[in-house]
Structures are given as structure tokens and as C-alpha cells.
Design a protein around this nucleic acid. Structure first.
Lengths: 245, 245
DNA sequence: ATGAAGTAGAATCTCGACAAAAAAGCTGAT
DNA sequence: ATCAGCTTTTTTGTCGAGATTCTACTTCAT
């Protein structure tokens, strides 16, 4: 299943290598929280799932491990990076540090082009459906994409592709946590409103206000994930720290 | 990222895989600026240089590319990341942002263990020779290691392994620039003194003072590199934008 | 029972050869 | 001379088999 062989029509017209194709698919599945059952990732399993030889699969796994989405032990293969409450806290804290700096720099160096891209990203996000129309229980992958695009547009003018890359990396991790914990449905949260406030204050040049709104946005999301974590997550994979009595 | 792996066995006794061995050696050579002549990195060349098959070499190259030390284009192989003045400026700026945050957090959460590790790192750095005794023209690799260890010890208590990893990554890049431009010999610069001031203010809990000293330290180094760059570096390898597709 | 040593099975990692693609070289017409 | 189009050469990316290492299980002695 899901054995979308490397058809020439996949995604864009660019001729990708098999390793890149596996990398992309596996990364999507990881961020989607689609395979959090087992901690270990046998290469043979990946091979049979994505339909590629061992060599390209290993290359893809090496990339993902270098990015921090997977772990690796020499002679012992690859494994899914464990999730835990303390990790989520640390992740959120780091993310707030970096995104605050990035947003302030972006606002300081704002220009017309960047502002237009931001309102565009907000508009697209507002138009998208939060959940899948046919199945309101699961998230809409398209919305996830646009959500990422919006937060990326916010910091796009910060003037450092390094910082943008780091924020992307942390965004990936946060995505994984959000979708693993099956982000609760709304619960009276005005998602689009939060994003709109962030964008408005940013466009107004109100750096302090924008940062405050952005950080609260992240912290609220993290808190909701944490809730689901504490009650519902089964730490059989070994993510548990010292939670038993 | 996750480059500064503290645990997996590079030290001794642990049997590493060939891919990891090539990764380590090639990374050292990159940071040493030992092979900046040609922009392209043919895998056959790497194979014959480090004596390993194509598969482990490709895995190592994939890791380095994911870390940002190499570049990669599908179906077109790997290449050394080009260096340029604007890149150096952007790198330094980003580094100052992240290291300032990391140092402030470290100072805020300081404890006895961390302080002791810091004075230890400073002591070892002060004892090491800046240049090689037998050949005072080239840098001492041992000193480079201790230098990195010192700056790492400074931020070790910041409470985020993510932030530490990012700083390590930027430190790698900075190392590369410093050693490519054959960091000028002293020129009246009191290197150990600068580090001592940083450590003293840090241990005193003087966050503002420590940050000021640290950032000046980085900016001065960058400025000296930039000088060498502007006059002596031959941009044939591609300081300019690389050709598309 | 408990624990240590040894063995069978499974997984990782590596090598060499092959296929696919890109770069370089060549011919010939404008 | 120049450039398009074809051929040759080089390089990348992929596959399948085999060697090495880890893991789980059995056996035996304390």
C-alpha cells in the first residue's frame, strides 16, 4: 500500500532520485504521526513499505537522522525519536526563543514584498478547512501545509537563512507532537483569530505585541498537547522519564 | 544536526561503522579547510581517499549535506558549500543571536557542576599551544578542539539541547571560515585574555558583561576573516551564486 | 531459580556490478 | 566561427548478494 512508484508525474516535474522520494514520503509520515507504534525502524520494513532498495532507503534514513527526526546507533540501526513531556517543554521553550528573535528581525527589516506574502499566507490559511470535510475527526493535510507556510512567512524577512532553517526544524518537531497527540478539536479555540491577531500586529510594526501573541499561540498549543500527553499517551516505547508513583 | 554526538563511540572501544568513520574524517577535513580547492565532490574521489565503498561514503555525504556542510543536487551529486563574505556576515549575525540567548540562559541556571566544567575548559585552553610547535605557521588541531570545548562549556547549562546543537552547527561553519582564511597569526590579539574575560564575567553572573565580551570576541574574529577574504580569497570555487539546475 | 556461556537466527552494514543520467566531445550544416 | 544534434565518456544512483554484528534462545553449572 501507498506504494506510489516513482511515476514521472509525482509532485513537480523535477526528476527526483529514489532516495529523495523515500525521504520525502517518510518525512511526511513522521510529521503526520502515522507510524508511532514501534520505536524501531527496520530498514527492511521501510524497503517493503516504500518500494525501494536498501541503499536509497539508508540514505534517506541518514538524512532524517541528521535532522533529528530519527535516531541512530552504529551497528544497531535507526529508531523513531522518542517523545516525552519534558522534551515537548524544552522544544517549546527553544522555539519561543528563536521565533521571537526571528519575528523581531523580520519586523525591523520589513518591506512591501514580505508584507504582501504575509497577507497572502493569512488569506489562504483562513480559506482552508481545519478538518477534512469527509472525516471531521482527522486533520486536513492541506491546512497543515498552509499553517506552516504562514508561520514561515512571518519570519521570512529576518535576514538569516540559518535561523529560518532552525525554526523550520523546530516546527517539524512541533508538528509531530501536535499530530501524535491528535490535537484536540477546537475546544473553543479561535485558531484563525489568533493567526489574524499575530499578522495584524506584525503588519502594524508592533513588535512587542506581535511577539506576545505569537508566543502565547505556541504555548497554548503546547499546553493542549501536553494535556493529551499526560492522560492518553502510552509510553511503552520508553519515552517515560519517572512518572510512576 | 546532532553533530556533536557525545555518546556514540568515537572515543574508544565502541565499534563504529565505516560510514561513521568516513563522516568523521571528512567532517574534520572540511572544518580544517583542507579541501577547498574544487567545488565538486565526486564520490569516487572520496572513496579512493578514505578507503571505503560507495555505500558508506554516500551515507556520510548525506549526513554532511543535511548538516549544511555540503550541498546536494539530485542526479548531480555533492559539492562543497561555497563561502562568501555575505555568508560570513549572516553566519556571524545568527551566531551572535543564538549564543547570546544561550549564554544568558546558562548564567540564569548556573550550578556548581557547570561552573567547574567551565574553569576546567578555560584552564585546558590556556595550557594548549595556539600553533603547532614544529610548524608555527599552521594551527594546532588540539587547540581548535579545546577552543570549541570552551565555547560549548559556556552554554552547556542553557537547558536546551536543541539550542546547543544549533550553536554547534554554527560553530562548525565558523570554524570552516576561520581555517580557510588561515586565521592570521595573533596580530597583537590577546586570545587567551579574551576568553578569560568571558569566563570571569560569566562566573561572576554578570550576564550583560559576559555577553558583550562574547559577542565582541565573535565579531572580531569574523572581521579578521573578512579581511583575509576581501584581499586574498580566490572565488573560483564559487563565492557567487551557483548555476541553476 | 539464577546466571553465564554458547549457539541459531535476524538485522545491519558493506562490497561489486549494473542501469540511468549528465557532462564532454564530435560532426556537419548555416 | 557557431550552434544544434548525436555519440562517447564520465559520474551518479540503484540493486542484490555476502560478510559482520547484534539479539534471542537454549543449555549447563552453581
Amino acid at each position: 500500500m501507498t506504494n506510489g512508484n516513482a511515476e514521472p508525474g509525482e509532485g513537480k516535474g523535477a526528476k527526483s532520485t529514489l532516495a529523495s522520494s523515500v525521504y520525502q514520503q517518510l518525512r511526511d509520515d513522521l510529521l503526520r504521526g502515522a507510524l508511532e507504534a514501534e520505536s524501531k525502524l527496520r530498514v527492511e520494513w521501510v524497503v517493503s513499505r516504500y518500494g525501494a532498495g536498501a541503499s536509497p532507503v539508508r540514505e534517506a534514513l541518514n538524512r532524517l537522522a541528521a535532522e533529528g527526526l530519527l535516531g541512530r546507533h552504529d551497528q544497531r540501526g535507526f529508531f523513531l525519536m522518542p517523545v516525552s513531556a519534558v522534551e515537548l517543554e524544552e522544544l517549546t521553550r527553544t522555539r519561543c526563543w528563536l521565533e521571537e528573535r526571528a519575528l523581531r528581525e523580520s519586523i525591523a527589516h520589513r518591506n512591501a514584498e514580505w508584507e504582501e506574502q504575509l497577507v497572502l499566507a493569512l488569506h489562504r490559511l483562513a480559506r482552508a478547512e481545519r478538518r477534512l470535510p469527509e472525516d471531521p475527526a482527522t486533520n486536513n493535510p492541506e491546512w497543515e501545509k498552509l499553517h506552516r507556510a504562514f508561520h514561515r512567512a512571518l519570519i521570512a524577512a529576518c535576514g538569516s537563512h540559518w535561523l529560518i532553517g532552525f525554526c523550520d526544524q523546530l516546527s517539524d518537531q512541533a508538528s509531530r507532537y501536535r499530530l501524535i497527540s491528535q490535537n484536540a478539536p477546537g475546544m473553543g479555540r479561535d485558531e484563525i483569530g489568533e493567526h489574524r491577531v499575530i499578522a495584524e500586529r506584525t503588519l502594524d510594526g508592533d513588535a512587542d505585541g506581535a511577539v506576545e501573541a505569537l508566543l502565547n499561540h505556541y504555548r497554548l498549543t503546547a499546553a493542549m498537547c501536553m494535556e493529551r500527553f499526560a492522560q492518553g499517551y502510552d509510553p511503552k516505547a520508553g519515552a517515560a522519564k519517572a512518572r510512576r508513583r
